[in-house]
């Protein structure tokens, strides 16, 4: 899902970079001291997850976890993923520095959406099934939203048909979506049962 340097047109590139800078600035203001260890942990998880390809069936699958990071961090997901994406661009040549803003927008905005859509469902004493569903929804919103945004940015800059791009992205990322949803469901359900205080920041 990392767009490469040179595929987006200049206006799309500039607009998405400006939006990302605003998101990072707002996220840094919203990052509270007690969230910092969790933010670093999720940043490291996002950074590493996309390098580990697990062969399943005919292809390979890896995690992205932007929805889960967004649920737990809220707007602070912007600076966290900015660091992780910059390191991926520098060390692995995933994406590039010119499109860092666009890639950040693609990854972080669905995370923020997951946070706002799901935080009301994770009150104290939430049922186990409810936690599983919320966690799975993280993966669906995170990956589905990222695929939508990536398709939209490509369609805006290339003039190609949005519906075709979306089918392409949707098919290619279905395995990632499923794995992310499964890991999200497991993680949120475990947090609810073992460490409910970890979710306190989600509700506030």
């Amino acid at each position: 899902m990392h767009l490469a340097d040179g595929v987006l047109s200049a206006p799309v590139l500039l607009t998405s970079t400006a939006l990302s800078v605003a998101g990072v600035a707002f996220g840094l203001r919203r990052l509270r001291e007690e969230q910092l260890p969790l933010a670093a942990l999720l940043g490291a998880a996002f950074f590493v997850a996309s390098t580990i390809h697990v062969p399943v069936g005919v292809g390979s699958v890896h995690l992205i976890l932007n929805g889960l990071a967004g649920l737990l961090l809220g707007w602070a997901v912007f600076p966290v993923l900015c660091v992780a994406l910059a390191l991926q661009a520098a060390l692995f040549s995933f994406g590039g520095f010119a499109v860092l803003g666009a890639n950040l927008l693609i990854m972080a905005l669905p995370g923020v959406a997951a946070h706002h859509m799901l935080r009301g469902r994770l009150g104290p004493g939430v049922a186990h099934l409810q936690a599983l569903i919320s966690g799975a929804a993280c993966g669906v919103i995170g990956i589905g939203g990222a695929a939508l945004l990536a398709g939209a940015l490509l369609a805006l800059s290339g003039g190609r048909v949005f519906s075709e791009l979306i089918v392409l992205f949707g098919l290619a990322h279905l395995p990632v979506l499923v794995v992310d949803a499964a890991i999200g469901a497991f993680t949120v359900a475990t947090l609810v049962r073992m460490m409910p205080q970890a979710l306190a920041s989600v509700r506030s």
Binding site: V56, V61, H173
Partner: peptide
């Protein structure tokens, strides 16, 4: 679902 989807080459990043 993973076995169904199959088209996994596009997942690699670089």
């Amino acid at each position: 679902l993973t076995l169904l989807a199959g088209s996994a080459h596009a997942l690699a990043h670089g």
